[in-house]
């Protein structure tokens, strides 16, 4: 067992022992932390299994050529447009976007397009934007979208070029 693994296991055990202790002795701090933990576990369990199954099926069915055609080096500007469209339909949060982005990258998608997908899945998810507009006003959402999309594109191209030859999928 590596050192990192030992540290991880001890941290996680201490955390759960603390939660168990809190529930037994009615310690409010621990009960609240435990509540937060299980709330998030619940919302992730609703999305993650499905997300990973779709990623798994994507890996076995979609061949490299298709991904390269739409998201690869030769896809040009269209690749970025597809990435933004794909990202706007992503559900969940960054924790779903990262594995999806990784799967795309492994199949030959260009790094800057993958980064565009990550950035815009944080900012352009349709259900989230509708929710935002209903609470903060349509004007707020429109300004935010119009300013953020170009910035995400520019920065993704910039970071993508910076790390082009350093990141191996």
């Amino acid at each position: 067992m590596s050192r990192e693994k030992i540290i991880n296991i001890s941290l996680v055990s201490v955390y759960f022992l603390f939660l168990i202790y809190s529930y037994i002795s009615d310690f409010q701090v621990g009960i609240e932390i435990g509540g937060n933990f299980f709330d998030f576990v619940k919302s992730m369990l609703m999305i993650l299994p499905i997300a990973f199954i779709l990623i798994g099926l994507f890996e076995v069915w979609v061949d490299r050529k298709t991904v390269e055609k739409y998201f690869g080096e030769a896809s040009g500007f269209r690749g970025y447009v597809w990435a933004i469209i794909l990202s706007s339909t992503t559900v969940g949060g960054a924790y779903v976007a990262f594995p999806v982005a990784h799967a795309l990258h492994k199949k030959g998608a260009k790094l800057s397009i993958v980064l565009t997908y990550i950035g815009s899945s944080a900012l352009t998810r349709i259900p989230m934007t509708i929710f935002e507009a209903s609470f903060l006003g349509l004007k707020f959402s429109i300004i935010r979208l119009l300013v953020s999309i170009p910035l995400v594109l520019i920065s993704s191209v910039f970071i993508g070029n910076l790390f082009k030859n350093k990141i191996r999928a």
Partner: peptide
């Protein structure tokens, strides 16, 4: 096979998710 890939990927990232 896809399910297997899904499970393998999920298992790999599980420690980071827990943290």
């Amino acid at each position: 096979e896809g399910f297997k890939v899904a499970w393998k990927k999920f298992k790999k990232i599980l420690p980071s998710f827990t943290k």
